[in-house]
């Protein structure tokens, strides 16, 4: 079981609610993925379509909502969004995203650290989205982040765990769960992250835009489970150390 703050999750796949063709497909795909925590964003109500409300189509007993601060460009904007999210959702959980560069949507480390510290002090459970930077990960942990969420690859690139070396270090050092977010375009990418020892992965686009989102949701669920099982089973010899092995060393000097 995965524990974040005081909550436990059976599924190690977190879902997203963006980019689905319809609410019906979204619901079915999320169900197939087995996700228990899903992200939502905050926007102005469309006054021309007052019934368009995602909360009315999702089962609040089935899913734990994780509001994000998508669109925030600095700590101040993120904190404003966080307070709005807390007011509308009645939850103090938050996926903190601070992305000043609209081209790459890469997270700003300085603003993210600043916002995390302030939000934790204000009682939020903060899950910060971050670049795969091991020191930043430790600094976020130090100021009270509930998880760290390093990106596998730049968002939208579907390149998988491109940041493998850095994420390995992050996992090795972390005292809080490590959730790999962004860049995971295929179930094999998710399995890879889980085999490395990630505690969970967050997948939205790859499921939402698949030819068959429901089947893809299920495929990710299976991949995450397989990856976790492999990690727990203990993976065997890796190429690196096998190649590094050298002939035995003489210890004739020992007495």
């Amino acid at each position: 079981m995965l524990k974040i703050a005081d909550k436990t999750f059976r599924s190690r796949l977190f879902g997203g609610t963006g980019k689905f063709a319809s609410s019906a497909v979204m619901n079915e795909a999320l169900d197939a993925s087995g996700s228990e925590m899903i992200t939502v964003a905050l926007r102005r109500v469309d006054l021309a379509d007052p019934d368009d409300d995602i909360m009315s189509v999702l089962d609040r007993d089935k899913y734990w909502f994780l509001p994000n601060t998508a669109g925030a460009r600095d700590a101040e904007e993120a904190i404003r969004l966080a307070n709005l999210a807390r007011a509308v959702g009645g939850t103090n959980w938050l996926k903190l995203e601070v992305t000043p560069d609209p081209r790459t949507l890469l997270p700003d480390p300085v603003e993210t650290l600043k916002a995390t510290e302030l939000l934790v002090k204000d009682g939020f459970i903060v899950l910060p989205y971050m670049n795969a930077d091991p020191i930043l990960s430790l600094r976020l942990q130090d100021v009270g982040a509930a998880t760290v969420m390093p990106l596998g690859a730049p968002i939208g690139t579907n390149q998988g765990v491109l940041m493998q070396s850095m994420i390995e270090i992050i996992i090795d050092q972390a005292q809080v769960p490590v959730v790999v977010d962004a860049g995971l375009g295929a179930p094999s990418h998710a399995a890879h992250a889980m085999e490395m020892g990630a505690d969970a992965v967050l997948v939205n686009t790859a499921i939402a835009v698949a030819g068959d989102p429901v089947a893809m949701g299920r495929a990710f669920a299976m991949a995450v489970e397989a990856g976790r099982m492999a990690y727990e089973a203990g993976l065997g010899i890796s190429g690196k150390s096998a190649a590094a092995s050298s002939p035995e060393v003489g210890l004739g000097f020992l007495q």
């Binding site: 090795d172 010899i237 890796s238 690196k240 150390s241 035995e248 210890l251």
Partner: peptide, 28 residues
Amino acid sequence: LARDKLHINDLATLLSPAASEMLPALAA
């Protein structure tokens, strides 16, 4: 010895009587 990342239980294995007979491999 073939793994990169070790669990604390692996340290016990390296401290075992079995490993005492394999010091040259440990040294390598």
